[in-house]
C-alpha cells in the first residue's frame, strides 16, 4: 500500500515541494533584507512598549511602512491549508469513488480499512510536513516585524505561523477525505471542503478571544506621559470610561495634564479621572493559545477521519 500511495500521490508531492520552494525563494531574501533594515534603522536595541515620539518608535514606524505590502499580502498564506485540503484531501477518496477504481483496488488482497489507513496516514504526514516547513519559514520571516511591534499574536498574524498552520492543514485534509466519503464526486467534495473549512476557521476565530480570560490595563487620559503602541500582546479592545465606569466610546485618548488640556480640542468634554481601558492577552499566552487552537483542529480532524472510516466501511 505504501508503494501504491506513493505512486498515486507522487505528482502531487512534487507540486507541493515546488510551491514550497517558490515561497522560500520569496520569503528568504525578503526576510534577510528585513533583518538588514532592522540594523540599518538602529532598531536592534529597541525593546518593549515605548512612549510616543521616542526615536525608537519613529524608526519602528518607518520600518512598518517600508514592509507594509508583504505584511498585507501575508494574509494569503491563511489559504494554504485550504489548498492542501482541496488538492490532497478531497480527491483522495472522492476520485476513487467517482471513477470506480475503488472496485479495482478493494478487490486486491488488502481490506478497505488498511487501504484507507495507509493512504490517509501517509498523505496526512506529507501535508503536515509541508505545513510545518512553511510555518517555520514564516515564523522566521516574521521575527523583524515582531521586533518593531507587529505581534505574532494579532488576529490574522496568529493564523500564519507557529503550530496552528499544521493543525489547519491536517484538519483540511481530513475534511477533504470525509467530504469524499460523504459525496463520492471530486468537485462537490471540494465544495464541501471549502464551506466546512471556512466555517470552522471563522467559528474558532470568534471563540479564540475566550480561550483564556483577558487581562485589563487602565491608564488615565490626562497624564504627563502615555504608554506608546502595545507590542507583543494581543490587543482585544481599547475603550474610554468615565471615573464612575460609564462607557464613553472606543479608541485610545491621550491628553496632556489637566491644566494644559483646554488647548487640546480632542480632550474637551473629558474629565480628570476618565481612563482608557485596554483588554488584551499577554504575549506569554501565545503558545497556550497556539496549543489550544491546534488541539481543537486536530480533534476535529480525528473525528472526521473516524467518520470517513465508518462511512467507507458501509459504502456500497
Amino acid at each position: 500500500m505504501i508503494w501504491m500511495t506513493w505512486r498515486q500521490h507522487r505528482a502531487q508531492a512534487l507540486y507541493f515541494l515546488v510551491a514550497l520552494a517558490v515561497l522560500a525563494a520569496v520569503l528568504v531574501p525578503l526576510g534577510l533584507s528585513m533583518f538588514r533594515a532592522l540594523t540599518d534603522l538602529g532598531l536592534s536595541n529597541c525593546h518593549g512598549t515605548l512612549p510616543v515620539g521616542d526615536p525608537c518608535d519613529v524608526a519602528r514606524n518607518t520600518f512598518a511602512e517600508r514592509f507594509a505590502l508583504p505584511h498585507q499580502l501575508s494574509i494569503l498564506l491563511a489559504f494554504v491549508p485550504l489548498l492542501v485540503g482541496l488538492f490532497a484531501g478531497a480527491p483522495l477518496v472522492a476520485r476513487e469513488l467517482e471513477h470506480g477504481t475503488h472496485r479495482l483496488v478493494w478487490m486486491q488482497g488488502v481490506t478497505r480499512r488498511r487501504w484507507l489507513l495507509v493512504k490517509v496516514g501517509l498523505v496526512l504526514a506529507g501535508a503536515a510536513a509541508f505545513a510545518a516547513a512553511l510555518s517555520a519559514l514564516v515564523y522566521w520571516w516574521w521575527t523583524p516585524y515582531e521586533r518593531v511591534g507587529t505581534s505574532r499574536f494579532g488576529e490574522l498574524e496568529f493564523d500564519l505561523q507557529g503550530l496552528v498552520p499544521v493543525g489547519y492543514t491536517i484538519f483540511a485534509v481530513a475534511l477533504g477525505v470525509a467530504a469524499g466519503a460523504l459525496v463520492p464526486k471530486v468537485l462537490p467534495a471540494m465544495a464541501v471542503t471549502v464551506a466546512g473549512f471556512i466555517g470552522a476557521r471563522v467559528a474558532v476565530m470568534v471563540a479564540r478571544p475566550h480561550f483564556q480570560p483577558a487581562e485589563e490595563a487602565r491608564f488615565p487620559l490626562f497624564a504627563e506621559s502615555h504608554p506608546g503602541r502595545f507590542v507583543d500582546m494581543w490587543q482585544l479592545s481599547t475603550r474610554v470610561y468615565s471615573a464612575d465606569g460609564q462607557d464613553l466610546g472606543s479608541g485610545l485618548i491621550t491628553c496632556p495634564p489637566a491644566a494644559e488640556a483646554e488647548l487640546d480640542r480632542g480632550c474637551a468634554g473629558y474629565q480628570p479621572g476618565d481612563y482608557n481601558l485596554t483588554r488584551f492577552h499577554p504575549a506569554s499566552d501565545y503558545w497556550t493559545f497556539q496549543l489550544i487552537e491546534t488541539g481543537i483542529f486536530l480533534a476535529a480532524a480525528a473525528l472526521l477521519i473516524v467518520f470517513a472510516f465508518r462511512r467507507l466501511r458501509r459504502f456500497t
Partner: peptide, 24 residues
C-alpha cells in the same frame, strides 16, 4: 467491474506492480 475501471495515470506495468504489492 463494469467498464473495467483502471487508474488512468498508471502505466500497465504500474498496475502489475500494484497487483504484486497488494496481493499475496
Amino acid at each position: 467491474a463494469q467498464d473495467s475501471p483502471l487508474y488512468l495515470d498508471f502505466t500497465v506495468a504500474d498496475l502489475l506492480t500494484m497487483g504484486a504489492r497488494l496481493n499475496r
